[in-house]
Design a protein around this nucleic acid. Structure first.
Length: 326
RNA sequence: AGAUCCUUGGUGCAAUGGCAGCAUGGCAGUCUCCAAAACUGCAGGUGUGAGUUCGACUCUCACAGGAUCUG
């Protein structure tokens, strides 16, 4: 395999890390507990919703009983009114990984937020100086007032390469590119290119658990039905009552954003269940697209192991020992 | 049984007798601090059979299927 050789060589002295990801509802959680048990690991959650307290049912958060004594990090660390992003994830996860290494344990990153995993593994440098909330806000207002095209033309003057790469309709990314240029004087396209060359920060085993589309969709449908039965509506109602608003990052998660109109009487719980299933399917598809694009991942298709979790576990352990202990 | 109306991508809807569009779903993709977010692309259709016409989703007839009303 003519893979980038220097990355492999350089990785010899890097701290080890196991990543277990895959599309939502594929079965990461139960496998992760057994893997951590076998390898003496602690789990770092890479999940943009499970960071929030009291968002348990809709995020399919692991229950304390199910942890079986395995320490879990970055779950329940924020109030649902707080915002979170890939920069903060990287900072926290890096710190947790270092602490776990110091205890002589193996950090196992488990979760479906591919972007967070990328930020950690590739050690993408975001710096606090690159943000300017007030400027960002003024750009949003401008977008609403004058339209997306005006912003895109601003970007074209400041950073033509990014303007070519980002469609005007994608206001969020146009604003981020303008903000970056505004605060650093540099085009974000240059920054992105530099960061993309950065070697991995860990010696990692990057597993993507997958399944045939049909089975995955069946699991999603079943899980959403279980969430409804478990009282998702009550969970969302409680969050709204405590002052969480639909605009907040936490409430834009699948399962939450669809439930708000039910509570407000705009449509039925059945309609919400239908939408949650549909949006979760779309999400799972996007996750698979993301992982396909990531190099250096080890695909673990459940169907190829006959849906035998013992066999999958043995294979993961074998791979980890081969890659991280050599 | 009779009368009236209806039949267009998987689904819901458009289209003076003149290039069959939209939404949604499906599939594929983008992504370097809101990522469970934001965004892009592709495929797919006139119920069947005749007729009128230079030309039919559109007009006529038959058939099939559906809806409503009457008995």
């Amino acid at each position: 395999m003519p893979d980038i050789p220097e990355r492999k060589t350089a990785s010899a002295d890097l701290p080890p890390l196991v990543i277990l990801t895959g599309p939502t509802a594929v079965g990461k959680t139960s496998l992760s507990i057994r893997l951590a048990g076998e390898l003496g690991g602690e789990i770092i959650s890479a999940d943009s919703v499970q960071v929030y307290r009291r968002m348990d049912i809709g995020s399919a958060k692991i229950l304390p009983d199910e942890m079986q004594g395995i320490p879990h990090h970055l779950i329940d660390i924020l109030e649902p009114t707080e915002s979170f992003d890939a920069f903060r994830f990287r900072e926290l996860a890096k710190e947790k990984a270092a602490q776990i290494h110091a205890r002589g344990k193996l950090p196992i990153v488990v979760g479906g937020t591919g972007f967070y995993i990328q930020a950690l593994l590739r050690d993408i440098h975001f710096s606090q100086q690159e943000t300017d909330e007030a400027y960002r806000q003024s750009l949003w207002e401008m977008a609403e007032r004058d339209g997306a095209q005006v912003l895109h033309e601003m970007l074209r003057k400041a950073d033509p390469e990014s303007a070519d790469a980002i469609p005007a309709e994608n206001i969020k990314r146009v604003i981020r590119a303008l903000e970056y240029h505004h605060t650093t004087g540099q085009p974000i396209s240059v920054h992105n290119r530099e960061e993309s060359l950065r070697p991995a920060a860990y010696r990692a085993c990057y597993f993507v658990l997958s399944d045939v589309r049909e089975r995955l969709y069946e699991r999603i449908d079943r899980r959403v039905d279980e969430m409804m039965e478990a009282g998702l509506e009550g969970e969302v109602r409680g969050l709204l009552e405590e002052g969480v608003t639909p605009e907040m990052t936490s409430m834009q998660a699948i399962g939450y954003k669809e439930m708000v109109p039910v509570i407000r009487g705009a449509y039925t719980a059945e309609e919400a269940a239908y939408r949650i299933k549909r949006n979760t399917r779309h999400f799972a598809k996007r996750q698979l697209t993301w992982f396909r694009r990531e190099g250096d991942v080890i695909w673990v298709p459940k169907d190829r192991y006959g849906y035998d979790e013992d066999a999958i576990l043995r294979e993961l352990i074998r791979q980890v020992k081969e890659t991280l202990c050599s």
